[in-house]
Every structure is written in C-alpha cells, then in structure tokens.
C-alpha cells in the first residue's frame, strides 16, 4: 500500500509538469480564444502539485524514516543527505509557485505582454524545478535499492 501512495505522489507530480508545459505553449499563443483554458490549466497545475505534495508529505512524515535508515547504511548516503534534504525544501518553493500561478494567470494575458512574460517565466521555472525534483526522487529510490542490494552480498 505504501508503494501505491508513492506512485500517486509521482503521478500527480508528472501531471503538474505536463500541465505546466501545456500551459507554457498556450500562453505563448495567448488570445481571447484560449484565455479561459489558460486559467483552468493554471488551476489544474496547482491542484496536481498540491495533491502530489500532500500525498508525498504524508508518506515522508509517516514512512520515510525506515527508508532513510536503509539509505544511510548503504553505498549512496548522499541520496538522503543531499537529494532528500534539498528535495523536501525545494518542493516548498514549488508549492508557492503553483499557488501563485492562477493569480498571475487571472490577468488578461491576451492583451498584456508583460503579464504574459511573467506567466511564461513562472511556468518555465515550475516545469524545470518539477523535473529536477522528480530526478531527486529517482535518486532517493535508487539509494534505497543499492543499499538493499549491497546488503544481500
């Protein structure tokens, strides 16, 4: 069951990244015709990220201590000491960014080039930070795997 929780954490994180990339492209071509979709996409990106955060946060608080102990005894202790430590704090910035996104996207992006540029920057940063954090998660999972494999020999 714990692994299923974790898979939903990753799934919603990927959902946020994909939605944000879609939003970036839509904002590049912002017009009166797609303004409504832009606003809904910004809310969807925020919802995906909040779900990923709440699920991941629950898993981290309740279950991560066991994984941490395994990682620290294995050959990749940096998977916790660097990657988990940075991930758990960078994700707070990501949460702030996606919460702010619908506020920025509520302006008339079709008529306001500066507001459009702001949302483009926000979506680019969210997508890049999201990808980086997904990568961190992969390294943390690998840290557990290599520790368990090392323990078998």
């Amino acid at each position: 069951m714990n692994e299923i929780i974790l898979m939903f954490h990753v799934l919603f994180g990927v959902g946020c990244i994909v939605t944000t990339v879609w939003l970036f492209v839509d904002v590049l071509h912002a017009s009166e015709a797609n303004l409504n979709r832009i606003r809904w996409l910004s809310r969807a990106a925020a919802a995906f990220m909040w779900l990923a955060f709440l699920i991941g946060g629950y898993w981290y608080v309740i279950f991560y201590a066991a994984d941490k102990a395994i990682i620290l005894k294995g050959p990749w202790p940096f998977a916790h000491r660097f990657f988990m430590e940075t991930k758990e704090h960078l994700v707070i910035m990501l949460l702030l960014l996606v919460t702010y996104l619908p506020i920025a996207a509520s302006n008339n992006l079709a008529a306001n080039q500066e507001a459009r540029r702001l949302v483009l920057w926000l979506t680019a940063v969210i997508a890049l930070l999201g990808l980086m954090i997904e990568g961190h998660g992969a390294i943390i999972a690998m840290g557990v795997k290599v520790a368990l494999l090392a323990g078998q020999h």
Binding site: A104, S106, A111, N112, Q113, E114, A115, L118
Partner: peptide
C-alpha cells in the same frame, strides 16, 4: 492597445 496593468494581488 497593449495593457500593462495587472491585479494588485499579482
């Protein structure tokens, strides 16, 4: 005409 104003919350 290009708008440059955004909401105060932005």
């Amino acid at each position: 005409m290009e708008h440059t104003a955004v909401s105060k919350y932005t």
